[in-house]
Simulated assay, not measured.
Amino acid sequence: DLGKAEFEKEYGRISTASTGSILRKIIELEQQGADIFFGELSFDINDLMRIDSNGNGYINIIRLTDIQDKPKLFSTFMLCLLAEIYSQMPEQGDSGRPELVIFIDEAHLIFDQASKALLDQIETIVKLIRSKGIGIYFITQNPTDVPNGVLAQLGLKIQHALRAFTANDRKAIKMTAENYPLSEFYKTDEVITQLGIGEALVTALNEKGIPTPLAACMMRAPMSRMDILTQSEIDTINNNSKLVKKYQETIDRESAYEILNKKIETAQEAAVQEQQRKTEAKEAQRSEPRQGSAMNPIVKVLTSATFIRGAFGILSKILNK
């Protein structure tokens, strides 16, 4: 029951069943490494929007190599990051250039096994974050990986080829085609399966905010090396980064277990001290002399009946003279 009163004061009464459910969710996150991950220094939003001496921005890559095994941790982290960006960035309205653009690869991992409450929060943030000058791109193989509420907020859609090998694949392609504007020039569900390398179907919002007709396009190849960075290249980039010193240091924060243990120890020490105080008070009472049980001899003589009669006799003789 330690800390129960404080918890109820902050959050109100919570049933035992609800508490058990919350604990199970926390344990699940902890098993995926959340206790270590969220104990480290959080991202400073300003670090994501740095510019160099020429006024050019930086590309920041958050390299997560094993997120497929930790979907709950990944979705929780992304929600925290988006919520923090949204809360700290000022309102900008329709600015000519975004302050920050976020590309989320393997986006389906955010939504896999996510609760309705989590999905609602993500949908709300995606709706409102554009007014902060933030652009978000969800990258996944199939649009059906993204919930409808979030998908409806995305103005730019780029669809590469999908292949149909099974009946379920064909159904998924039909559903995918229905997420794009109707076209008089294409049978979207057929074109998607016929796209080649470097080809895509594209639709965006025009200057009036209206979705443009679907267009089959040839994509311009990136002007960079399309390959995986070697470990030595990654080390070189990290060593030249000004942020390494800030984020590389491991922080050993107090865990909830350690905090509770300290509270228990403090409570036990206070109980021992209180018991010791009571014991000392009892011993002090025993050592004090009892008033009235051993009356002062002078007072005893002055209050005796013999003394009083003698005093009255002397006074009577004096008065008779």
Score class of each variant (00 low, 15 high):
residue 88 Q to L: 13
residue 237 I to R: 12
residue 69 D to L: 08
residue 288 E to Q: 12
residue 267 A to F: 06
residue 172 A to I: 03
residue 123 E to K: 03
residue 129 I to K: 08
residue 128 L to H: 10
residue 50 R to I: 13
residue 291 Q to T: 04
residue 97 R to I: 15
residue 154 L to A: 09
residue 136 I to D: 13
residue 177 A to K: 02
residue 215 A to D: 10
residue 173 I to N: 01
residue 161 A to F: 00
residue 183 S to I: 08
residue 175 M to L: 13
residue 108 H to S: 13
residue 272 V to W: 07
residue 274 E to K: 00
residue 58 Y to Q: 07
residue 139 I to C: 11
residue 247 Y to W: 04
residue 49 M to I: 02
residue 281 A to N: 14
residue 39 G to H: 04
residue 239 N to V: 03
residue 289 P to V: 12
residue 156 L to A: 01
residue 201 L to P: 11
residue 229 L to K: 11
residue 202 V to T: 06
residue 52 D to P: 03
residue 17 A to K: 14
residue 84 E to P: 06
residue 68 Q to V: 11
residue 255 S to F: 04
residue 5 A to E: 13
residue 237 I to D: 10
residue 293 S to P: 00
residue 17 A to Q: 11
residue 72 K to S: 13
residue 276 Q to H: 07
residue 92 Q to S: 07
residue 108 H to V: 07
residue 73 L to K: 14
residue 67 I to H: 15
residue 152 A to S: 15
residue 61 I to L: 14
residue 149 G to M: 10
residue 260 L to N: 06
residue 17 A to T: 08
residue 17 A to M: 10
residue 67 I to R: 10
residue 297 P to Y: 01
residue 274 E to S: 05
residue 75 S to D: 06
residue 115 S to M: 10
residue 105 D to K: 04
residue 123 E to Y: 00
residue 152 A to L: 13
residue 88 Q to E: 14
residue 297 P to K: 03
residue 184 E to V: 13
residue 146 V to H: 02
residue 310 G to E: 07
residue 103 F to L: 09
residue 276 Q to L: 06
residue 83 A to W: 09
residue 288 E to L: 08
residue 77 F to G: 12
residue 314 I to Y: 08
residue 210 I to E: 14
residue 301 V to C: 01
residue 32 Q to A: 09
residue 221 A to Y: 00
residue 48 L to E: 13
residue 13 R to W: 01
residue 219 M to R: 03
residue 280 E to A: 13
residue 116 K to W: 00
residue 239 N to F: 06
residue 253 R to A: 12
residue 242 K to A: 15
residue 55 G to C: 10
